[in-house]
Amino acid sequence: MSVFSTILRQIVNGLQSGSIYALVALGYSMVYGIITLLNFAHGDIIMVGAYIAWLSMAKFSMHPAFAILAAILGCTLLGMLIEKAAYKPLRGSPRISLLITAIGVSFLLENLSQMVFGAKAQVIPTFFEIPSIYLGSIELSGTALITLLAAAVSMVLLTFLVQKTKMGKAMRAVAEDTDAAQLMGININHTISFTFAIGSALAGIGAILYCSAYPQATPTMGSMLGLKAFVAAVLGGIGSIPGAMIGGFAIGLAESLVSAIGLSVWRDGVVFAILIIVLLVKPTGILGRPMREKV
């Protein structure tokens, strides 16, 4: 086993977890960009997605492809429902109320699933058997490569959606200036709903990729994942879509690096140290624009 192949493997490990962080961070970033809300319930949407996948396959013995669709669809609807029920009534309120509501929704989802499914970890059946790929003598996990590929495709589609379609234009306009966008005839409610739907669908995809890598569903699985994705979003520059991707991969690689040099116990610590450093040194993140305080 050469040093080179160990390094290559560690990079693949980092990219795999990084691509999941990136997908989740995108959801954070998009929602923040449009209504400046840190949606702390975002990680828990992934948890719900994992349980939907588990229910469809283990309980209703559905085909994995349908289970994947059900999870993504379930997450999308849940995201829109949360927006309509919890955030929309507070749109005019101070931002802190929204933030507290988001934390409340997060706890609600966690405790609800603990009540319904129990605290025990549920084992999610394998979606598809993916054979490993050999690069010379180096074995690379098929799941890791599929995760990377799926994340990359999702990001390309998202970029296309935001940059090239009419709805994307509306989203960017609302993010820029909500009131002005409304005056230009953009339906704010639809646009915000749509943003939540897209963000939550990405969370659904994240849930599927997460479950194929770590096939267990627990009620609290979303909280740490959500926090790390939040750090990724801040690192990349919250509100910025390419920033979220860069941040996600950077966090994944940083974690992998820390473990590779034998400090695996410090993994979480390093992630949050990155958050502190970013907030101190460059609060806007790598690609974030400086925020102007609107009066």
């Binding site: 086993m1 040093v3 160990t6 493997r9 560690q10 490990n13 980092g14 795999q16 977890s17 890598a213 770590y214 267990q216 699985m221 974690e255 992998s256 820390v258 473990s259 590779a260 034998g262 695996s264 993994r267």
Partner: peptide, 13 residues
């Protein structure tokens, strides 16, 4: 923790 791959990669070496 749910990801042990980095540690396991070290062990693999």
């Amino acid at each position: 923790d749910v990801d042990f791959k980095a540690q396991l990669t070290n062990i693999l070496a």
